[in-house]
Protein backbone atom coordinates (compact mmCIF):
# COMPACT_ATOMS: atom_id res chain seq x y z
CA UNK A 1 0.00 0.00 0.00
CA UNK A 2 1.46 3.38 -0.94
CA UNK A 3 0.83 6.55 1.03
CA UNK A 4 2.01 10.04 0.10
CA UNK A 5 3.45 10.56 3.59
CA UNK A 6 4.49 8.15 6.30
CA UNK A 7 1.61 7.18 8.61
CA UNK A 8 1.66 8.27 12.26
CA UNK A 9 3.97 6.05 14.31
CA UNK A 10 1.25 4.09 16.12
CA UNK A 11 -0.56 3.36 12.87
CA UNK A 12 2.72 2.23 11.32
CA UNK A 13 3.27 -0.15 14.27
CA UNK A 14 -0.23 -1.63 13.92
CA UNK A 15 0.13 -1.90 10.12
CA UNK A 16 3.21 -4.14 10.56
CA UNK A 17 0.88 -6.89 11.74
CA UNK A 18 -1.40 -6.83 8.67
CA UNK A 19 0.44 -9.78 7.10
CA UNK A 20 -0.65 -11.94 10.01
CA UNK A 21 2.80 -12.01 11.63
CA UNK A 22 3.32 -12.52 15.37
CA UNK A 23 5.98 -10.01 16.35
CA UNK A 24 7.92 -9.33 19.53
CA UNK A 25 8.65 -5.73 20.64
CA UNK A 26 12.27 -6.17 19.48
CA UNK A 27 11.12 -7.23 16.01
CA UNK A 28 8.76 -4.24 15.79
CA UNK A 29 11.64 -1.95 16.78
CA UNK A 30 13.92 -3.47 14.13
CA UNK A 31 11.21 -3.33 11.42
CA UNK A 32 10.54 0.39 11.95
CA UNK A 33 14.12 1.48 12.58
CA UNK A 34 14.68 2.30 8.90
CA UNK A 35 11.75 4.69 8.70
CA UNK A 36 11.50 6.19 12.19
CA UNK A 37 15.00 5.88 13.73
CA UNK A 38 15.70 9.56 13.02
CA UNK A 39 12.66 10.62 15.06
CA UNK A 40 13.84 11.69 18.52
CA UNK A 41 11.12 9.77 20.31
CA UNK A 42 11.86 6.42 18.66
CA UNK A 43 13.14 3.73 21.02
CA UNK A 44 12.30 0.47 22.87
CA UNK A 45 10.30 2.23 25.61
CA UNK A 46 8.00 4.00 23.13
CA UNK A 47 7.50 0.81 21.12
CA UNK A 48 6.67 -1.18 24.29
CA UNK A 49 4.16 1.49 25.42
CA UNK A 50 2.62 1.65 21.95
CA UNK A 51 2.15 -2.16 21.84
CA UNK A 52 0.62 -2.14 25.33
CA UNK A 53 -1.85 0.64 24.35
CA UNK A 54 -2.80 -1.16 21.12
CA UNK A 55 -3.26 -4.33 23.12
CA UNK A 56 -5.56 -2.99 25.90
CA UNK A 57 -7.65 -1.22 23.25
CA UNK A 58 -8.29 -4.48 21.42
CA UNK A 59 -6.24 -3.72 18.27
CA UNK A 60 -3.54 -6.30 19.11
CA UNK A 61 -3.53 -9.42 21.26
CA UNK A 62 -0.53 -10.57 23.28
CA UNK A 63 0.43 -14.23 23.37
CA UNK A 64 3.61 -15.33 25.16
CA UNK A 65 5.46 -12.08 24.61
CA UNK A 66 4.44 -11.73 20.95
CA UNK A 67 1.66 -9.61 19.51
CA UNK A 68 -0.81 -10.28 16.72
CA UNK A 69 -3.64 -8.29 15.13
CA UNK A 70 -7.23 -9.03 16.24
CA UNK A 71 -10.14 -9.08 13.78
CA UNK A 72 -11.32 -5.71 15.16
CA UNK A 73 -7.76 -4.37 14.88
CA UNK A 74 -7.42 -5.51 11.25
CA UNK A 75 -10.66 -3.72 10.35
CA UNK A 76 -9.58 -0.51 12.14
CA UNK A 77 -6.05 -0.48 10.72
CA UNK A 78 -7.28 -1.01 7.13
CA UNK A 79 -9.89 1.72 7.53
CA UNK A 80 -7.37 4.20 8.96
CA UNK A 81 -4.70 3.48 6.36
CA UNK A 82 -7.26 4.12 3.65
CA UNK A 83 -7.50 7.86 4.15
Amino acid sequence: MTMPVKPPFRLAVAALFLDGDRLSPEEVLASLAGEYARAGFFGPKVVALCLQCLSVNGILREETGRYLLTGYGRERVRKNLGG
Binding site: V5, F41, N80
Partner: peptide, 19 residues
Protein backbone atom coordinates in the same frame (compact mmCIF):
# COMPACT_ATOMS: atom_id res chain seq x y z
CA UNK B 1 9.67 19.58 19.33
CA UNK B 2 12.04 18.77 22.24
CA UNK B 3 10.91 15.13 22.20
CA UNK B 4 11.47 14.88 18.43
CA UNK B 5 7.76 14.48 17.71
CA UNK B 6 7.09 17.58 15.59
CA UNK B 7 7.18 15.66 12.27
CA UNK B 8 4.72 13.23 13.83
CA UNK B 9 2.34 16.22 14.09
CA UNK B 10 2.47 16.75 10.30
CA UNK B 11 2.13 13.02 9.60
CA UNK B 12 -0.87 12.80 11.91
CA UNK B 13 -2.59 15.85 10.37
CA UNK B 14 -2.42 14.17 6.95
CA UNK B 15 -3.85 10.85 8.22
CA UNK B 16 -7.39 9.63 8.79
CA UNK B 17 -7.02 9.31 12.60
CA UNK B 18 -5.59 12.85 12.62
CA UNK B 19 -8.77 14.08 10.96
Amino acid sequence: WRCGRLRELGRSLASRPGK
